[in-house]
Amino acid sequence: MPRIMRLLIRQTIIGFVLSALFIALLYAMNVANLWYLVTHSTYGVFATLILWVLNGIVFASVQFGIAVMRLGDDEDSRPGGGHAQPVPVPAEAAAPRTLRL
Rank of each mutant, 00 (worst) to 15 (best):
V68D: 02
L26T: 09
W52H: 15
W52V: 01
A28F: 13
P96V: 08
V31W: 13
I66Q: 09
A47N: 08
N30L: 02
A93H: 11
L25E: 01
I57N: 03
Y27C: 04
T48N: 11
A95E: 13
A24Q: 12
A28E: 06
I13L: 15
L7W: 02
L26N: 10
I66F: 14
V45W: 07
D73W: 11
L101Q: 07
G82A: 12
G80I: 03
S19P: 05
D74P: 02
G80D: 05
V89G: 01
M29W: 08
V38I: 14
V58D: 00
I4N: 10
M69G: 13
L8T: 15
A47H: 03
F16A: 07
A28R: 09
V53S: 02
N55V: 04
R78M: 15
F22W: 12
W52R: 01
H40N: 14
Q85Y: 07
T12G: 13
L101I: 06
P86E: 02
R78G: 02
V89F: 04
N30Y: 04
T39E: 09
F16L: 10
S19Q: 04
G44K: 01
D73F: 12
A24H: 08
L71C: 11
V45E: 04
I57E: 01
L37M: 10
T98D: 03
T12P: 05
F59N: 12
T98C: 00
P79T: 06
T39M: 13
W52G: 00
A95M: 12
S61Y: 07
I4T: 13
N55M: 13
Q11G: 06
V62H: 08
H40K: 07
W52N: 01
V53G: 01
Y43S: 11
L71W: 09
L51G: 06
P96R: 08
P86S: 03
L25C: 08
P79G: 06
V38E: 10
R78A: 14
L21I: 14
M5D: 05
R6C: 09
Y43A: 13
M69K: 14
Y43K: 11
P2I: 02
G15M: 06
F59L: 15
H83G: 02
G65C: 09
T42M: 05
I66P: 01
A60F: 06
A93T: 13
A28Y: 11
P2W: 05
A20G: 14
V38S: 13
S61A: 15
G56F: 00
I9N: 03
V38K: 04
V17T: 15
I23Y: 06
H40R: 10
P88E: 09
G80A: 08
T12Y: 06
P90I: 03
P88S: 10
A60C: 10
L25P: 00
A28G: 10
V38P: 00
A20H: 03
E92T: 11
G65Y: 14
